[in-house]
Structures are given as structure tokens and as C-alpha cells.
């Protein structure tokens, strides 16, 4: 069963600047939620706090019933295996080649696997993105798009139940974009809890079941996509129009086209 992720009254500041202010939001199990907002609204910070990577000054983050920051070390480690995180800038380890980048989570969490098994699994996961010829390459030898794809493979190599992605389609070409979209679709089919930060209109239109709208570190609203899209709040609508362009004015027919055989070719329906 995929986990529920819940943030309660999370606040964070840096150098005297408020990054997150009493942010509360729940990402229900097996849902796909997109976090939107203007640049600098705190989306990435929210995602990192949710993933247990950025300790908030106040508030709590719970994955099901476990507080991600105060749980015992062994419990936190077990939780890490269930969470996949895709960084906006990929954050591949420069001192490891592509294969070792993908293999490290297996090395940490799957102690039953031999080094050969880890290499085989890593290679097969890379092959799904057509990246296996790059297995021996160092991150600096890859394009930004390839780095992003490798980072996604690394984030998903343990088949996590909770996946957090920061701009999953940034810098990728059409081929990798299609492949990443398929992978997100597959995660949805596996009932993963997915949280993504993106400015990509098409992806949001097709994939998002829920929306979180942020402004200046605050969660303005969150809920099912259609409810948030139809929000009467002028501020929310303004942000949606600004961030997602014409999506808020798409009619139902167009969304259905996008959900079916639309231009992105996703072929999955937004529930």
C-alpha cells in the first residue's frame, strides 16, 4: 500500500527570508499531485522538506504515521528505501559513473544482492531509457537531459512507493520526455504516491489528479485538480493562469484529447 505524506504547519527560513510559512498539505496514498506556483514560491523547498532533506524550523512531516525527522535511525533508513527523489539539477555523484550512481541505492538497501546482481539490475534499468551504453560514463560526460534521465533511474531503482520529482521534464529532449512520461504513467499504474513540481503545462494537464498552489512560501490551496482549477479565488486563478498558461481555460474536450491520444502520447486518463 502506497503511503500518505502529510506536512503540518511547516515553516522554514533562510538568512532571514521566509521560504515556507505554516505550510500544511496532505498527499493522499496512490495519488498524483503537482505543486505549482511562481518561481521562488517555495515549491522545491516544500518537496525537499517533504522528502526529509531539509529540516524545517517548525512543523512535522509524516509518511503514514512516521515522522520523517524524528523517527529512529533504523526506521528512517527503511523509509528511505520507500522514497524516490528526483532533484531539479539531477545531483548525480561526480565521483561515480552512471552504473554506480544507479547502483548505490541497491548497495545500501539490498544487502542480499551481490555486486554482479546490482550491476545487472542497474544496467537493465538504464536500458529502459536507452541509457545502458552510457553506463561507464561519468556524469560530466552526459548532457543535462541524460543526467536527468539517469537521476530518474536512480530515484526509481528501488521501486519506491512514494516518488517526489522536481521538474522531471526540464532539459530533456523529445525522446527522453516521452520515456519519462511513460515511466510516470507506469508509477501511477503501480499506485505510487507521486508528488511533482513542474512548470510543464501539458504534463500537469494530463497527469495531475491533485494540485497544490503555492505563493511566497504559503500553500494557498490544495485539492483535486478540477476543484482547484475552478477555484473562485482570484489569487489562485491568477497563479494558475500565469504558471500553467492556457490550461485553466482548456475545455473538457481538449483535456480528454490530451488524456487519451493527445500530443504527448501519454495514453493515460486523468482520474
Amino acid at each position: 500500500m502506497s503511503p500518505t505524506l502529510r506536512l503540518d504547519d511547516v515553516s522554514l527560513s533562510r538568512d532571514g527570508t521566509t521560504v515556507l510559512s505554516n505550510a500544511s498539505v496532505e498527499f493522499s496514498a496512490a495519488s498524483t499531485t503537482f505543486v505549482v506556483g511562481d518561481s521562488g514560491s517555495g515549491k522545491s523547498a516544500l518537496l525537499k522538506v517533504a522528502a526529509g532533506l531539509l529540516l524545517p524550523e517548525r512543523g512535522s512531516v509524516r509518511v503514514d504515521d512516521t515522522d520523517i525527522y524524528t523517527a529512529a535511525e533504523s526506521k528512517r533508513l527503511a523509509l528511505r528505501a520507500k522514497i524516490g527523489f528526483l532533484f531539479q539539477d539531477s545531483a548525480l555523484w561526480a565521483n561515480r559513473n552512471v552504473l554506480d550512481n544507479v547502483g548505490l541505492p541497491l548497495l545500501v538497501h539490498r544487502r542480499d544482492l551481490s555486486a554482479a546482481d546490482i550491476a545487472d539490475i542497474s544496467r537493465s534499468r538504464l536500458a529502459r531509457f536507452g541509457l545502458d551504453p552510457l553506463a561507464a560514463a561519468r556524469p560530466h560526460e552526459l548532457s543535462d537531459g541524460e543526467q536527468k534521465a539517469v537521476a530518474l533511474v536512480r530515484a526509481l531503482v528501488l521501486d519506491p512507493e512514494l516518488v517526489l520529482m522536481d521538474e522531471p521534464l526540464q532539459s530533456v529532449d523529445h525522446r527522453l520526455r516521452s520515456r519519462i512520461e511513460e515511466e510516470i504513467g507506469a508509477m501511477r499504474d503501480r499506485n505510487c504516491t507521486i508528488v511533482a513540481v513542474t512548470h510543464d503545462e501539458d504534463l500537469t494537464a494530463v497527469m495531475a489528479e491533485h494540485l497544490v498552489v503555492m505563493r511566497a512560501g504559503e500553500v494557498l490551496t490544495y485539492g483535486p485538480f478540477d476543484e482547484v482549477k475552478a477555484s473562485p479565488d482570484a489569487e489562485v486563478r491568477g497563479i494558475l493562469e500565469h504558471v500553467l498558461g492556457e490550461i485553466v481555460s482548456y475545455d473538457t474536450d481538449l483535456l480528454q484529447i490530451l488524456s487519451g491520444d493527445g500530443p504527448t502520447g501519454l495514453g493515460s486518463e486523468r482520474s
Binding site: 532533506l53 533508513l77 527523489f85 548525480l92 555523484w93 548505490l104 536512480r154
Partner: peptide, 9 residues
Amino acid sequence: EVEAYVAVG
């Protein structure tokens, strides 16, 4: 990269 290490445990 340090955050990425934390992310994978």
C-alpha cells in the same frame, strides 16, 4: 550531491 546521499539513505 550531499543531499542526494541523504536521499538514498
